[in-house]
Design a binder for these strands. Structure first.
Lengths: 338, 338
DNA sequence: TTGTACGCGTTATCAA
DNA sequence: TTGATAACGCGTACAA
């Protein structure tokens, strides 16, 4: 570990005070041009670099945003993070990333670390397990701005950015119905998760409005967002004899699983089985035009989330800040299949 | 901004010195059980939280790793980051993420910010533009451990983790040849990028060993790793009349572009056109078994990268640390197409 | 076992 | 325009 050059060193060299050096370095207007340039010169010569941590300690602001997501390596989350980072960087903020791995325990630990690291704000998408929000209320008490995105808790008085899942689900199921399907299965995550519930409600709503009877046996809850899970779930469903003519999947990865399974089973897609799901448009665009996608603007969600929390952080009259909930509509991407 | 509780506050409350509090809080053996538990009790009551920045300033270690990647929202990079974060977290390290957006300028800025933030180590994958490595040598002079991954510079005396691109490319092209293809096109990025060059060399090597003549016109350099680019590039190639019977793509996303284009053109895949590319196995697994994939173990690369730099950071005899270059072999994933 | 005093690198306040 | 000094929150050598 090398000893690093500090303002003290350059003050000593020039026989001036550290205060002067500090001011000169940041181009304060009350420093003469001569000393300024002298300081600059020596600073360069000695390879001086300001210590951001020390600065944070005094300024009580670290210019760091903390982000907690269930996992980084899923398109939706990495896109959001990318969006967050891009606007944060533009405004001079750094981003610290953590993945809760869908564990409540880990999420709590992470939030604690983040808070103790003097981050200026925290953006969080809850893990599947998270039911208790004491760790979030703690942050409020500590005066740390928090923003919830995508996996949120309605009752928390915080800014939120979410996808309009009800609308999206309803819309895409309607799309399937318009194509003449009426035995539409739903494969998705645990209904205890608000997101899952919303999409499920959208699915039900579309059926209802079109006077299609709801069949509980066509609803499959799986525990993990993994293609193998949906693949197996679908195979079971198919073999059970209670066959759907369409499947609405909670996520694109699940749709891929169903697609793979139906290929295995020799089912003609979308003639005998239409597949649809939430996700990013790549799937419809490049993978299989027979899969209809409800494209989530994940990158934009991240951007908006960062913008909102930065607004809150830098708000002049803190008391008057109003929490906003932004509901972003996804885009239906459906191609006429060949 | 709320005033936060410090050891001073709890020292005052108990009429003891901050030193005692500090020691008690971290369970020092030289503190009596009584004071220890008294301190703990008050600390809990007053909602004390240690300030990690202040601690870093003294300890000269922040327990933070800096990561710089070209972009977060591409599978390969987000997977690597996920791998890095997972092992870092286990060892008590935090991770700070930046994306260079393939800009040398931004990369340099980021590295400076990271270094000034007292990160304990930096993991970096160079941007496409990066040709000059002064910013990296700066880090060395400042005594900050650096690890290069995937987009590296051979001549830098640092630990590196990379994919065996030559091997992978050769292997996958051989696979195409074994399937009877001999007019194999290559669509990839700028050959100035070492990774691109390696894969190109592998491609050439496979042709050579199989006594297939190399046709420069079948080599297409595109500027961006985007499916639309490869799609257009392929269409042009096809229309030029100089038609390949197989395409080896630098990346999976490019393969998807070619697949989309060939569907548009009514080309039978893989009968009239076999497609192969580097990427993650999802594509072969779920998207189209007719695309053969050279699966990069991106998550594992991240894990290994983190392990290596942590080893370097925590090495006892710093002088004896030996830089290692880990070359990870990708896995060919090819299904018999239907 | 505990306290005193100083230091980490920087900035802010006040005085000169 | 500049300097001395305290402060940010914490850890530690040294002394008691």
């Amino acid at each position: 570990m090398k000893k690093s050059i500090t303002i003290k060193d350059i003050a000593k060299k020039l026989n001036i005070s550290t205060a002067t050096v500090s001011r000169a370095l940041r181009g304060s207007s009350e420093i003469s041009k001569e000393t300024k340039s002298a300081v600059m010169k020596i600073a360069k010569e000695m390879h001086y670099h300001p210590n951001l941590l020390a600065r944070s300690l005094i300024n009580k602001t670290s210019k760091v945003l903390g982000v907690v997501v269930p996992t980084i390596n899923r398109q939706f989350w990495s896109n959001s993070i990318s969006g967050i980072e891009s606007v944060a960087y533009k405004k001079g903020y750094k981003v610290m990333i953590f993945q809760s791995a869908e564990s409540y325990q880990k999420e709590v630990e992470i939030v604690e670390i983040l808070a103790n690291s003097m981050v200026d704000g925290i953006l969080i998408a809850f893990s599947k397990e998270t039911q208790d929000y004491a760790h979030i209320e703690d942050l409020r008490e500590r005066g740390i701005p928090v923003l919830l995105f995508e996996r949120v808790c309605e009752s928390l008085p915080l800014s939120k950015v979410i996808t309009d899942d009800f609308f999206g689900a309803k819309c895409i199921v309607n799309h399937l119905i318009e194509r003449g399907k009426n035995r539409i299965a739903y494969i998705g995550g645990p209904l205890s998760l608000p997101v899952c519930m919303e999409r499920f409600r959208g699915y039900q709503s579309a059926l209802l409005e079109n006077k299609i009877s709801f069949d509980q046996d066509l609803v499959i809850e799986i525990s993990d967002f993994d293609a193998d899970f949906s693949s197996n779930a679908f195979k079971n469903l198919w073999h059970s004899g209670n066959r759907p003519d369409a499947v609405f999947c909670f996520a694109d990865i699940l749709a891929l699983g169903v697609l793979a399974a139906s290929k295995e089973l020799g089912i003609k897609v979308p003639k005998d089985l239409a597949i649809a799901g939430f996700g990013n448009d790549d799937i419809t665009k490049y993978v299989s035009p027979s899969i209809s996608t409800m494209a989530q603007p994940s990158f934009e969600i991240g951007q908006l989330a960062a913008k909102l929390i930065l607004k809150e952080i830098n708000f002049e009259e803190e008391d008057e800040f109003v929490f906003r909930t932004e509901i972003i509509k996804p885009n239906l991407i459906a191609r006429e299949s060949s």
